[in-house]
Simulated assay, not measured.
Amino acid sequence: MITCKKSYRDIPFAHRQHLHDGHCAFIHGHNWTITLTFACEALDTNGFVVDFGKLGYIKKWIAKHLDHACLFNENDPEREKLLKNYGNLFQAYVLPNCSCEGIAQHLYEVFNPMVQEATNGRAWITSVEVEEDSKNSAKYSAGE
């Protein structure tokens, strides 16, 4: 198996950890970095695991769903009220867990099928690392 990595940096979005007993319970934002590790057994005809220049579909997905968005846990009791009363002020993205760890796992579940489809199953994602303001990070690895 051979791997390569691609990072998407300085993606501004906010989140809220509604169960946290401190300041993370408030909506707050970070600049995020998402690093994807790709793998394959056989390189393509160019000698690539993936062609970095042809990953525009991932960049577009990030721009559409995360850039300047506010992420909410699907079980956040304030989410519906916020969206009903203020939903025109921000773009919301709802996922099971919007912690750094939850975002990493969710992005793996979103991006891995996209990569497999784009490469006809030749390449896949082995891990997704999410960095919060380059100070904190979490990594989700498939099968570990």
Rank of each mutant, 00 (worst) to 15 (best):
M1Y: 13
M1Q: 14
M1C: 14
M1K: 10
I2Q: 14
T3V: 11
T3F: 07
K6Y: 14
S7V: 12
Y8Q: 03
R9F: 01
D10Y: 08
D10T: 12
P12W: 12
F13M: 05
A14I: 05
A14N: 04
H15F: 03
R16S: 03
R16L: 00
Q17S: 14
Q17G: 06
H18I: 06
H18D: 08
L19S: 10
L19K: 13
L19Y: 07
H20E: 08
H20M: 05
H20V: 09
H20K: 06
D21F: 10
H23L: 15
C24Q: 04
A25Q: 14
A25M: 04
F26C: 02
I27W: 06
H30E: 11
H30V: 04
N31C: 12
T33H: 11
T33D: 15
L36S: 01
T37G: 00
T37I: 02
F38M: 06
F38H: 08
F38G: 00
A39S: 15
C40G: 10
E41L: 02
E41A: 02
A42V: 14
A42S: 12
L43Q: 03
L43C: 03
L43M: 00
N46H: 06
F48E: 00
F48A: 03
V49E: 01
V49I: 04
V50K: 00
V50P: 01
F52P: 01
G53N: 07
G53D: 04
L55F: 04
L55I: 01
Y57A: 06
K59H: 10
A63E: 15
K64V: 06
K64I: 02
H65C: 12
L66N: 02
D67C: 01
A69Y: 06
A69N: 05
C70Q: 11
F72Y: 06
F72A: 07
N73W: 05
N73E: 08
E74Q: 15
N75S: 06
D76Q: 02
P77E: 07
E78L: 09
E80D: 15
E80F: 09
E80V: 05
K81E: 11
L82P: 00
L82C: 06
K84A: 15
N85S: 15
G87Q: 04
N88L: 15
L89T: 14
L89F: 13
F90K: 02
A92S: 11
A92I: 04
P96G: 08
C100T: 14
G102V: 07
I103C: 02
I103W: 01
I103F: 02
E109C: 09
F111L: 10
N112C: 02
P113H: 12
M114G: 08
A118V: 06
A118L: 07
G121E: 09
R122Y: 00
A123H: 06
W124Q: 00
W124Y: 09
I125D: 03
T126F: 04
T126L: 13
T126H: 09
S127K: 09
V128R: 03
V128T: 00
E129I: 10
V130K: 05
E131R: 13
K135M: 14
K135C: 12
N136I: 11
N136D: 13
A138I: 10
K139V: 15
K139Y: 09
Y140I: 03
S141N: 07
S141F: 05
A142C: 13
G143K: 10
